[in-house]
Computed example of a mutant assay.
Amino acid sequence: MSPHVLILGGTTEARRLAAGLAARPGVRVTTSLAGRVTRPAALAGEVRTGGFGGADGLADWLRAHHVDALVDATHPFAESITANAVRAAAATGVPAVVLRRPGWRPGPGDRWHEVASTAAAAEAVSRLRPGSRVLLTTGRLGLAAFAHLTEQHFVTRSVEPPAPPLPQHTEVVLARGPFTVAEESELLRAHRVDVLVTKDSGGEATAAKLTAARALGLSVVVVRRPPLPEGVTAVPDVAGVLDRLGFGG
């Protein structure tokens, strides 16, 4: 029987992994997407959309579809999905790998203020002078943490329009990345941004905004990643996952 690999996806790395596995003869690959984006980028192999119903539902799916390996390649902040994947893998005996691109690190000239959560980021923003202009790149689901702030002006960028609650003074920019440093610099200048707020997503695809902020001398509030479940070590790249699954070389 062909080996079946389930990828919990939604990231650039998940798409690359699916392509790498699908190119190998005899390997069946299924990528599961949460369904938060209505028009996701094309994926190699099979695609399913929607949740599993927690760890128990995921375990049932692994058994029913004869999955031989599970790869959690979700966003570094998809904390509950990662926890469910680890529990489901333990319950079924399916080998599991967590794929996480390395996080960002501040360099010379960076003006970072690192915080532990979006709530802490909102607290940091609340201390800014009234009228400060803040670019929020924390994702649609993270905007609620800032909804109570009325003294600052916010610009938020997302692929699709965010749902309420939003801060009172919010301008929404609809765009799909990745963006170049020049594009990020133009956005920051055009909206007269004083402070950038972002999550430590890591990777090159979304790092241009940090380069642009550094060049413009802007402060950046960076939300640190949640820790991985106890005993779990992440693999940093697609090549490492392929090696772990026995498809390297």
Rank of each mutant, 00 (worst) to 15 (best):
K209I: 11
A190N: 01
T156F: 11
A208R: 12
R157M: 05
D194P: 12
A212N: 13
L174M: 07
V181P: 13
V181H: 12
P165Y: 07
V155P: 07
E183M: 09
A212K: 02
R192G: 06
V181T: 15
L196F: 00
V222C: 07
S219N: 15
S201H: 02
E160G: 04
L187C: 01
V155R: 03
H191M: 01
L216Y: 13
L210A: 06
T170E: 11
Q152K: 00
A163K: 14
L174V: 07
A208P: 11
Q168E: 10
A234S: 08
V222R: 07
P227C: 04
V193K: 07
E183G: 00
G203A: 04
V223E: 09
L187N: 00
P167T: 03
A208W: 02
D194I: 10
A175T: 05
V181E: 15
E184K: 00
K199I: 03
A212S: 14
V197R: 02
T180W: 10
P178C: 00
P227Q: 05
V159E: 06
E184A: 06
H191W: 06
T156V: 11
E171R: 13
F154V: 01
L174H: 12
G202D: 14
V181G: 10
H191A: 01
S219P: 12
E230Q: 14
E204S: 15
V232W: 04
V235H: 08
Q168I: 04
P226L: 10
L228G: 03
K199R: 15
V172G: 09
V235G: 02
T206P: 12
E230L: 14
S201M: 11
Q168C: 02
L228D: 05
V193N: 07
K199V: 10
H169Y: 02
L228Q: 05
T211Y: 09
T211H: 15
A215D: 15
P162I: 09
L228P: 09
P227V: 15
V195Q: 03
G203N: 13
P164F: 09
P226Q: 04
V195C: 06
G177T: 10
V172W: 12
K209Y: 00
P162R: 10
A190T: 13
A234N: 11
V235P: 01
E160T: 11
F179S: 02
A215P: 04
S219L: 13
D194W: 07
A215F: 08
E171C: 07
E186S: 14
V173N: 02
T198D: 04
V193S: 11
V195H: 10
T180S: 04
T233N: 09
E230T: 14
V173P: 03
P229R: 12
V155M: 05
T206L: 14
A212I: 06
H191T: 01
G217D: 07
S185H: 15
V232A: 06
H169M: 00
V155C: 06
R176T: 01
P226R: 03
F154W: 03
G231Y: 04
V181I: 15
P227L: 10
K209P: 06
E204L: 14
V222M: 13
V221P: 04
A207N: 12
L218V: 15
A175K: 02
